[in-house]
Amino acid sequence: QRALPQRPEDVGCEESFQEYVQRRTAEFNAHTRKRPRDDRLWLEYAAFQDQALGDAAGSRQASRAGQEKKLAILERATAQNPQSEALWGEYLRLAGDLLPPEQVEDLWDATLQTLPHSARLWLQFIGWRRSVFSLYSQMETRYLYSKCLRRLAAYRQQTIRSRDEVAVQDRAGPSADLEAEGTRLDAQVVQCEEHLLRVFYE
Rank of each mutant, 00 (worst) to 15 (best):
Q113F: 05
A95M: 03
P100Y: 01
W122L: 04
S131L: 10
L98W: 02
E102Q: 07
G96I: 06
R151I: 05
S146T: 08
F133T: 14
L98Q: 05
A119F: 02
G96N: 04
F133G: 12
G127L: 03
V132R: 02
L152C: 09
M139D: 11
L99A: 09
S118R: 01
L135P: 12
Q103D: 10
L123K: 05
Y136Q: 11
P100I: 00
P100C: 02
S134A: 13
T141C: 15
Q103W: 00
W108E: 07
E90P: 12
L92I: 01
P100L: 04
L112R: 09
Q138W: 06
L123I: 00
R120E: 07
H117L: 09
Y91L: 15
C148H: 05
W122R: 06
W122M: 07
A95W: 00
L99M: 14
L92N: 00
W108L: 08
W128D: 01
R151Y: 09
W122A: 02
V132T: 01
Q103I: 13
Y145I: 10
V132F: 01
T114D: 06
R120H: 00
A119T: 02
S146W: 04
V132L: 04
V104I: 00
L98H: 01
W108D: 08
L123Q: 05
E90D: 10
L121T: 02
M139W: 05
Y145F: 15
R142A: 03
A110F: 07
L123C: 09
E90V: 14
Q113M: 11
Q124N: 08
L135S: 10
P116I: 00
Q113K: 15
Y136K: 12
A110Y: 07
P100S: 05
L149G: 10
L92T: 04
K147Y: 10
T111M: 14
C148M: 13
V104T: 01
W108S: 12
M139Y: 06
L121V: 04
K147F: 11
R129G: 14
L107E: 03
L123G: 04
A95I: 03
T141L: 09
S146C: 12
L99T: 05
L144W: 08
R120W: 00
Y91S: 12
A110K: 13
Y143M: 13
E102V: 08
Q124K: 11
E90L: 13
S118P: 00
E90M: 07
L135D: 11
S146A: 15
L123T: 06
T141N: 09
S146G: 15
M139V: 08
S137H: 09
C148I: 01
P100G: 02
Y136L: 11
D109H: 11
A110R: 15
E105T: 13
H117A: 15
C148Q: 09
